[in-house]
Write a protein that binds this DNA or RNA. Structure first.
Length: 582
RNA sequence: GCGCCCGUAGCUCAGCAGGAUAGAGCACGGGAUUCCUAAUCCCGGGGUCACAGGUUCGAGUCCUGUCGGGCGCACCA
């Protein structure tokens, strides 16, 4: 059990004793009782709000309850001081050994330290990236990809059975546009001048090799053939080529999905009809005419009767069309089928990571999931805001017209996958993020990736010196270190920060917010750097004290624990900790 | 017009499940290097948490409204 979980248990036990003595009513819920590290050190090392919460149901003044609780807690051997503080907090100071024990726990558990079986094997489907297979990934895709991948890692770490999934939108008008674009490149490869690309097609250079490959394979067989003869074939070929490219882009980021689901395959297998029949059987489909959307007027608006889903019955703002006037299914219809498919594969929890420009889509899909599962399945959507690419503080123009889109691959090759991944988690997902190609590779404390890696590298450096100087460094020896020798405030501050790791992990998982790990690591690294520098001014605080080997061993144990937590955190983020700075 | 997200120090952002006197970095001013990596650290000033109500013992956090910014809004994806 983690430090704060133990404290919470202590508080609950103390409350139970108060109940036994009749000082508290029996039928109380302790659910909202928390034990937290206070912001202000004057409020102790841990604080509980129990008395504030229970005062009303107990019919007693908060301070009176707080004093009773403090008295009960003061008897615990780990508790050095328990004070009631207005308006009714109980502040605790713990025996340093209570915190020091976390070092041993971290050493024994390694990167499993703080790991909790929150999920109990519950399956969760995390869908992320899911970029259309019409071109390479760009930087914006990269953010959602990293957020989704780190979230998947985090949930897997915490006991969920995670499936990482990519939905391939390989059907519809965009694929026809892709096929036509490739056909142009194909004709170009056969020596034909093609001029400029018509509006709506994909002029990017990345289709040139695809056209060339098709020219080699098929010669001029489809050069002047009617579209009906090649549209489907070229579409498939182009999607295959783009998907191969996207998989390479993902691999460069260290991302590997478990499942790629093809929209086209779903459609061809009749899953859309099946899904809609299912909703129909629940009485949730009807044919009707939607009112014209307000706001900017649409030129060619005509009121047409459409097949609609009763999304308003499940919290959406309007009912949603399922079939286009062309007779094709809407994207939404296919998406319902897709999510129903996920549900039937055993996922009653699904997380989709999307770009913020899809925000307007969230309610309708959640409505659909609620509808087909009768409320038994949950769809969470995490929206990622834009990434502003900068180059030395100046915005990098991503002009699509000039064909100068900055691909994810370009950026990852320039700054490295580890830097990219970490920086993508230095903001919460729903805040815009500046990504400066220069700043993220600078080796300075202003660069959080570097700052954390530097802490890890410094610890590794200490261990190299330790081995050279004949200090014991094996884990079996470090766990036996006399940890009570750690007594400097800077050391104990680092120990207490370390003890917060399990709590950080749990909360990050509960909230589905992997960026919290990145922030935690920056804080932990900061306390480590502070301790390090303190050793510069106070040589007695240096880690490798030759004349006092037990003390050195205790300090090495602390450093090993910090290194373990950094490595664990970086591991979930998907970053390789460095042992030396390059 | 409607929906979603955002509004916290001069700038960029945290703020943990509603907790106490709101934090960090940058920038600005001052300081630390016989030493395990100074690629770092320490000290200092700096705030009407957009605004107005409400719920609560307690609100940056929850609810309502207003203002400001971003995104989206039939038959695209």
């Amino acid at each position: 059990m983690s430090a704060f979980a133990r404290l919470a248990a202590l508080v609950r036990a103390a409350l139970a004793r108060l109940q036994e003595r009749g000082e508290l009513p029996r039928d109380l819920s302790f659910d909202a009782v928390v034990v937290e590290p206070p912001r202000d050190p004057a409020h102790g090392e841990a604080a509980t709000n129990a008395a504030l919460l229970l005062a009303k149901p107990a019919g007693k003044p908060p301070m009176e309850l707080a004093r009773a609780l403090a008295a009960a807690l003061a008897r615990e051997p780990e508790v050095v001081a328990a004070r009631a503080a207005p308006p009714g907090f109980v502040n605790l100071d713990l025996d340093p050994d209570f915190w020091r024990a976390e070092i041993r726990a971290a050493l024994e558990a390694g990167t499993d330290y703080g790991r909790l079986d929150l999920g109990r094997g519950r399956p969760v489907n995390v869908e992320y990236c899911s970029a259309n297979p019409t071109g390479p990934l760009h930087v914006g895709h990269g953010r959602g990809t990293v957020v989704g991948d780190a979230l998947a890692n985090l949930l897997a770490h915490m006991g969920y059975r995670v499936t990482r999934e990519y939905y391939v939108n390989d059907a519809g008008a965009q694929i026809e546009a892709l096929a036509r674009s490739v056909h142009l490149r194909y004709r170009e490869a056969l020596g034909e001048p093609i001029g400029s690309f018509p509006e709506g097609l994909y002029p990017g250079e990345y289709l040139v090799p695809v056209g060339r490959a098709l020219a080699e394979r098929y010669g001029d067989r489809y050069r002047t053939a009617p579209e009906s003869e090649w549209l489907d074939l070229f579409g498939r070929e182009a999607v295959a080529a783009m998907l191969a490219r996207i998989r390479e882009d993902l691999a460069a980021l260290g991302v590997r999905h478990d499942v790629f689901t093809s929209e086209r395959a779903l459609v061809e297998a009749g899953k859309v009809e099946e899904a809609l029949d299912f909703l129909k059987s629940k009485g949730l489909l009807y044919t009707g005419t939607l009112p014209a959307p307000k706001g900017k007027p649409i030129e060619d608006w005509e009121p047409v009767p459409q097949l609609l889903f009763k999304a308003t019955a499940f919290g959406d703002d309007t009912d949603r069309p399922l079939k286009r006037s062309t007779g094709h299914w809407t994207y939404f219809a296919a998406d319902i089928a897709y999510h129903l498919d996920k549900w039937r594969r055993g996922f009653d929890w699904m997380i989709d990571v999307w770009g913020a420009d899809h925000a307007g889509y969230v309610k309708r899909l959640q409505a659909a999931v609620k509808a087909f599962s009768d409320g038994a399945a949950t769809l969470d959507v995490r929206l990622c805001q834009l990434v502003n690419l900068l180059d030395g503080g100046k915005p990098l123009r991503m002009s699509k017209r000039a064909g100068r889109i900055v691909t994810l691959r370009d950026v990852v090759e320039e700054v490295g996958k580890d830097v990219f991944r970490f920086v993508m988690l230095t903001r919460k997902n729903d805040a815009p993020l500046d990504f400066d190609l220069v700043a993220v590779t600078e080796q300075s404390k202003d660069n959080p990736v570097f700052y954390v890696q530097y802490a890890h590298a410094r610890i590794c450096s200490v261990f190299r010196h330790a081995r050279e100087q004949g200090f014991p460094t094996a884990r079996e020896e470090l766990v036996r270190a006399p940890l009570e020798r750690l007594s400097d405030p800077a050391e104990l501050a680092l120990v207490r920060a370390l003890a917060l790791w399990p709590r950080c992990l749990e909360q990050a998982a509960r909230h589905g917010e992997p960026h919290r790990l990145a922030f935690f690591l920056v804080d932990l690294a900061g306390l480590f750097h502070a301790l390090w520098t303190k050793g510069k001014e106070h040589p007695e605080l240096r880690f490798l004290v030759a004349e006092d080997r037990p003390l050195a061993l205790a300090r090495l144990a602390l450093l090993a624990a910090v290194r373990t937590v950094i490595a664990a955190g970086l591991g979930i983020i998907g970053v390789q900790p460095v042992e030396e700075l390059g």
